[in-house]
Design a protein around this nucleic acid. Structure first.
Lengths: 350, 350
DNA sequence: ACGCTTCGTCGAAGCGTTTCGATGATTCCT
DNA sequence: AGGAATCATCGAAACGCTTCGACGAAGCGT
């Protein structure tokens, strides 16, 4: 392994000079700098990350705290990771992937105490997330992807769920729909404090109320079967249903299947809008889904940039930013045509 | 930060003794060990990863070389990562996620030279993958997830594509199908050496030939639109088509949409089997897809275990293992009913 | 020409571990 | 009983880098 010593000898300078060329911590004359750089190139020198990390107390590694329950596994999350990875790479940092569950405080404490992370990106943030306290206590800078209920002094980037719901609902209202059902994640997800589900549901209720409409909500596990059941429930509660607003991609595909089985055409009989969904997933359905498109990779990039800026040591106020989902109208939403007649009591599949 | 020194002082022993308790490199008497462990617990000591890494030349970090092109982003890959992360965590190792493209030899060389990785898991392996040579040259142990054309001396775990194709084809043959079209990834993917596409296609050709059948193959970009077009092409080339075998999930959903538009029912008119597909994705379709289910998380776990075993320093022969996809029959495949009549020249959507 | 800054560089002391050789204290064999 | 072998522990030298104080050589004003 070629070390700084070798470079120094080869360039006829001291090790510290080589170090300064690399870090820029002190000015070095152009002549020496050039010689040092030449020596590095010639010897194909790469700094040893561990040594640098030990001496500088900066590992250049960012932790990606990504609990891997079944939910957090969609195309949106993947795009997020991609964006984060690219931003990190651009800044010569690395991303360390940790699947620690949001509730496993001990594991997080262990990880953070190893001083292997310069900072952390916290995914799958819950309304009351114990990780915030742990990281703060251990002095590990962090940025939430998502946000807790109380966000005072906590840096985060998140999706503007209120804006997203409004955009989706207003799109449907513009098309003439009045009977809209909101298909959310499961009761358990809500109970466990899964923030996107809670926030969107609250916004939905508010927005519908603002328009003097009844906010119909059904919940479903993240499976197609649950989606089917959810739609049947919705049709019972509101037979005149003309639009579905979804915050649960997996269930939504079940909804679509069930709609087809019941002889309801999309978008002629029922319009469908999926929120926080990627174009890739939207395309899987026929017709392609109208979505509030998730800003996946943007969010990831942003999170890394905010975190790195924090590490630079600005003692400024913690950065908080909401990024919006944009409406992309595809084939699944259209003008209200008529109150569909249908045979009551849908037929089960197969 | 509490260091080994603190622990040593607190326990009344030398630092080296503390180290030996931790690493087990030398025997320590039960009495001292107990005192040391007590001191650690009391002080809430966590070893500094950087210092340990520098001194031991073992970072306990495994690189996950995961090129993030559009393709490698499905549920199968996610499951893989999940499995790997869990296996690594169990062995007290970390996973460092690097999105370096397969072709970017320089970036890989830079990463590997930093000595930040104990070993690497190589994803998205191509038939001729330059990364193998780089890693070997730089002395970084690795395991391929996938495999190159020439696998002599290269440790890998991969899916048994031949078995997968056989399983799928035989399932369809058993149901009476004879006109089967294989929907593969794009021409470019094939040309660039994307191994799963090449291997499955070859197996398909072979297996069909073994049964005296014509192997019809169409290629498609990984989009629904391309899938639609692919199906239309297939119907022109083989109007009597009764089954679709897919190696391209995204295109497959286009295929399903186009089938519906053409008035062809699944599985009554056309049976569909998707290969290397997760149950999650299978469920998105209605009816749910019959699949050769990808062993995602198993593969990830296995890869990490193999790599760790390699790091333990067994000079044995390089571990090579193929793991099979298992047939899961869902609603999309059924007995051949009849040669479907149809209006020639499908109607484009919308 | 004098001291005073400023500039560029050097040497050495860490950073928190691991690991190697050495050192007493025991135990064992004859 | 005496020397060899074994055992548990210690001290110190790495590991490859960063960073701090120091120092000679220029450049400055007066």
């Amino acid at each position: 392994m070629v070390t700084m010593h070798d470079v120094a000898r080869h360039a006829g300078v001291s090790v510290s000079t080589v170090s300064y060329v690399l870090t820029g911590a002190r000015p070095i004359s152009p002549a020496t700098r050039k010689r040092v750089l030449a020596a590095m190139a010639e010897l194909d020198y790469q700094p040893n990350a561990m040594a640098r990390g030990l001496a500088s107390r900066r590992s250049r590694i960012l932790g990606l705290l990504m609990p891997m329950d079944d939910r957090g596994t969609g195309a949106t999350e993947t795009a997020f990771v991609t964006g984060a990875a690219e931003a990190a790479a651009r800044a010569a940092h690395h991303l360390l992937l940790s699947p620690i569950p949001a509730g496993d405080v001990d594991a997080l404490r262990r990880l953070a105490s190893q001083r292997i992370l310069d900072g952390a990106l916290v995914m799958e943030v819950q309304m009351e997330d114990p990780r915030v306290e742990v990281l703060r206590e251990l002095g590990v800078p962090f940025v939430l992807i998502g946000r807790t209920r109380d966000t005072t002094g906590v840096p985060f980037v998140d999706i503007d769920f209120d804006h997203t719901v409004r955009g989706a609902v207003e799109h449907l209202l513009d098309l003439g729909h009045r009977s809209i059902v909101f298909v959310n994640h499961s009761q358990e997800a809500l109970a466990s404090g899964y923030a996107p589900a809670l926030r969107t549901q609250e916004s939905f209720t508010t927005v519908m109320a603002e328009h003097g409409l009844e906010p119909l909500v059904v919940t479903a596990e993240d499976t197609a079967a649950a989606g089917r059941a959810a739609l049947r429930t919705a049709l019972v509660q509101c037979p005149g249903l003309s639009a579905v607003l979804a915050m649960n991609e997996h269930a939504l595909f079940g909804v679509l299947g069930e709609l087809a089985l019941q002889g309801l055409k999309v978008p002629d009989d029922v319009s469908v809008v999926s929120m926080v969904t990627s174009a890739q997933v939207a395309d899987l359905a026929t017709p392609a889904l109208t979505t509030m498109t998730s800003p996946g990779s943007t969010l990831g990039r942003l999170a890394v940039e905010v975190l790195l800026r924090t590490l630079e040591g600005s003692g400024g106020p913690s950065h908080q930013e909401l990024v919006t989902c944009s409406l992309e109208v595809r084939g699944s939403s259209g003008h209200l045509r008529r109150t569909p007649e249908r045979t009551p009591g849908g037929v089960a599949s197969r």
